[in-house]
C-alpha cells in the first residue's frame, strides 16, 4: 500500500510516498538520495547503513520506512554545521581513520553518537561499542585513536 510519510532528515522536513514493504535504507538512498547511507549486507550485520533515528543508532536496512514516519533522521551529512566539519570528522581525517571509505560515514556518525552520549568512554569500552560496524580495511586502531582524540570536544 502506498502512503505518505514525513521524515526530518538532517533537520530538513521531507515528505515522501512509500510502499509498506519499503525499507528505510532504500527510501533514504533511492527516493531521498541520501547516499552516504550504504548497504553491504542488507541484514543488519555490517552496520554500513547506520543512521540515527530520533537520536538512536539503528541499522536502516532492517527498519521499515513506514515505521519511521514523523522521525528525525541524522546521517553523516548532518554532522556538518555552518559548513564546518564536526570534531569527529576532523579527527577521522587527521588520524587516518579510513581507507576505502565505505564504512566511514557510518563509523563517523556512530562515533559522534558515542561521544555525544558517553564523552567519558574508555578505550576498552570503545572497542566493544564499535563492534557493530565492520571495517574490512581494518582501520579500527585509527578509528579508536580518532575518537580518543576528539573526546575533548564532546566533554560537557
Amino acid at each position: 500500500m502506498a502512503r505518505n510519510i514525513t521524515l526530518i532528515v538532517n533537520g530538513v522536513k521531507r515528505e515522501v510516498e512509500i510502499e509498506d514493504n519499503e525499507l528505510l535504507l532504500d527510501v533514504l538512498r533511492e527516493k531521498l538520495k541520501v547516499k552516504s547511507v550504504k548497504a553491504a549486507c542488507w541484514r543488519g550485520e555490517c552496520g554500513a547503513c547506520t543512521i540515527l533515528l530520533n537520536g538512536e543508532p539503528v541499522k536502516s536496512c532492517i527498519v521499515l520506512a513506514a515505521e519511521a514516519d514523523g522521525s528525525e533522521i541524522t546521517t553523516v551529512e548532518g554532522l556538518i554545521k555552518d559548513g564546518e566539519l564536526s570534531p569527529i570528522q576532523r579527527a577521522f581525517i587527521e588520524n587516518g581513520a579510513l581507507q576505502c571509505g565505505f564504512c566511514t560515514p557510518a563509523f563517523t556518525l556512530f562515533c559522534h553518537y558515542i561521544l555525544s552520549t558517553r564523552p567519558d568512554i574508555t578505550e576498552e569500552e570503545l572497542r566493544e561499542e564499535l563492534s557493530g560496524i565492520i571495517c574490512r580495511c581494518g582501520t579500527y586502531k585509527q578509528i579508536i585513536r580518532a575518537v580518543m582524540q576528539a573526546k575533548k570536544h564532546y566533554k560537557k
Partner: peptide
C-alpha cells in the same frame, strides 16, 4: 550483543 542492533 551487537551494540547497535540492541537499540532496536
Amino acid at each position: 550483543l551487537d551494540p547497535i542492533l540492541i537499540h532496536r
